[in-house]
Measured scan of single mutants.
Amino acid sequence: RGFLEKAAVKKMAKAIMADPNKADEVYKKWADKGYTLTQMSNFLKSKTAGKYDRVYNGYVIHLD
């Protein structure tokens, strides 16, 4: 289950990176699912340092 969630989160993160207008909708879905910042950090780990920082930081702001 965790692997599928991670894959889904990364897919949506890539969608945000391609079209930032989708961010609020995606952040709301993640918040509704109760994803914590720790979970998001783990889901968005990448071999490329900083690749998903913008998405993660946007989610931090959304939760605030």
Rank of each mutant, 00 (worst) to 15 (best):
G2L: 13
K6V: 12
Y52Q: 02
T48P: 15
K51E: 13
K47R: 09
V55Q: 01
N57H: 11
K10L: 13
K33P: 01
L44Y: 01
V60M: 12
K51R: 07
K6T: 11
G2F: 12
G2H: 15
F43C: 06
W30D: 00
G34R: 05
S41T: 09
L37Y: 04
S46L: 05
Q39F: 04
K29Q: 14
D24I: 10
D53F: 05
Y35D: 00
M12H: 05
P20K: 06
F43Y: 07
M12V: 04
R54H: 13
A18Y: 08
S46M: 04
T38S: 11
P20I: 08
R54V: 14
Q39M: 13
T38E: 15
A7P: 04
N21Q: 10
A31V: 08
A23L: 03
V55K: 00
K45P: 03
K6I: 13
E5V: 10
I16E: 00
K6R: 14
R54T: 15
N42L: 10
V26I: 14
M40C: 03
D53W: 07
G34W: 03
D53S: 06
Y27P: 00
V26W: 04
V55L: 02
K11F: 08
T36L: 03
A7V: 14
D64H: 12
K11Q: 13
G2D: 15
Y35Q: 00
H62P: 01
A8N: 09
D24H: 10
N42I: 12
V9I: 10
L37I: 10
A18Q: 11
I61P: 01
W30L: 02
E5G: 08
G50E: 06
Y52L: 03
A18K: 12
D32Y: 07
V55R: 00
A7T: 09
R1G: 14
T36K: 03
D53E: 09
Y52E: 01
T36D: 08
K14M: 11
E5D: 09
R1E: 12
Y52N: 02
V9Q: 01
N57C: 15
R54I: 10
D64P: 03
A23T: 04
E25M: 11
V9E: 01
A13H: 01
N42K: 12
A7W: 13
P20G: 07
G34Q: 05
E5H: 07
Q39I: 08
M17Y: 04
L4G: 12
G58W: 03
I16G: 01
K29V: 15
L63N: 02
G34A: 05
F3P: 09
Y35H: 03
M12Q: 15
G50F: 05
Y56C: 05
L63M: 06
A15H: 07
M12A: 11
K47F: 08
D32W: 07
K47A: 10
I61F: 08
A7E: 11
Y59W: 03
V60Q: 10
L44G: 01
G2V: 13
R1K: 13
A18M: 12
N21G: 10
I61Y: 08
E5I: 10
D64G: 15
T38G: 11
A7G: 07
A23I: 04
T38L: 12
V9F: 03
E5W: 05
V26D: 01
F3E: 11
D32S: 09
L44Q: 00
I16F: 01
A18R: 12
V60S: 08
G50S: 06
V26L: 04
S46T: 08
T36S: 09
M40F: 01
N57R: 12
K6F: 08
A31H: 13
Y52W: 09
K11V: 07
Y56K: 04
K45S: 14
K22F: 08
A15T: 10
A18L: 12
D53C: 10
F3I: 11
M40A: 02
W30E: 00
V55A: 06
Y52S: 02
D53H: 04
S41I: 07
V9Y: 02
Q39H: 07
D32Q: 12
T36R: 02
K29N: 12
L63A: 03
I16P: 01
A13R: 01
R1I: 13
K45D: 10
K22V: 13
Y56W: 06
L44A: 00
M17L: 14
G50Y: 04
H62M: 06
N42C: 15
D32E: 14
N57S: 09
Y27T: 00
A49L: 11
A13S: 03
G58M: 04
M40R: 00
D53Y: 05
D64R: 15
M12K: 04
A15P: 01
K6Q: 12
E5S: 05
R54Y: 12
A31K: 08
W30M: 01
V26P: 00
K28E: 07
P20R: 05
K33V: 09
K47H: 10
A13V: 04
S41N: 10
K47N: 13
K22S: 09
E5Y: 05
H62R: 02
L63I: 07
V26H: 03
P20H: 09
G2P: 10
G2M: 12
K10A: 04
D64Q: 15
F3Q: 11
A31P: 00
N21I: 07
I61C: 14
D24N: 10
Q39A: 07
K6G: 12
K33I: 12
G34N: 07
K6A: 14
H62E: 02
A8M: 14
V9L: 04
I61H: 13
Y59D: 02
K33Y: 11
L4I: 11
A13G: 03
R1C: 15
A23F: 02
P20W: 15
Y56A: 01
L63K: 03
A7L: 15
T48V: 11
E25K: 08
Q39D: 13
L63G: 03
H62S: 05
S46H: 07
L44V: 01
A15W: 07
K11L: 11
E5M: 07
K28L: 06
Y27C: 03
L63V: 05
K29F: 14
I16D: 00
K11N: 11
K22T: 09
T36F: 03
V55H: 02
K29P: 00
K51S: 05
I16N: 01
L37F: 04
Y56L: 15
Y56Q: 03
P20D: 05
D19Q: 06
G34D: 03
M17I: 11
K28F: 04
D24W: 08
A13K: 02
K47E: 14
A7S: 10
P20M: 06
W30K: 00
R54C: 15
Y35S: 00
G58Q: 04
T48K: 11
D64E: 15
K14T: 07
Y35L: 06
K6N: 07
E25Q: 09
W30I: 00
Q39T: 06
M17Q: 05
Y35E: 00
G2N: 11
G34E: 03
Y59S: 01
M17H: 04
T38W: 10
L63E: 02
K45Q: 12
K33E: 09
K45I: 09
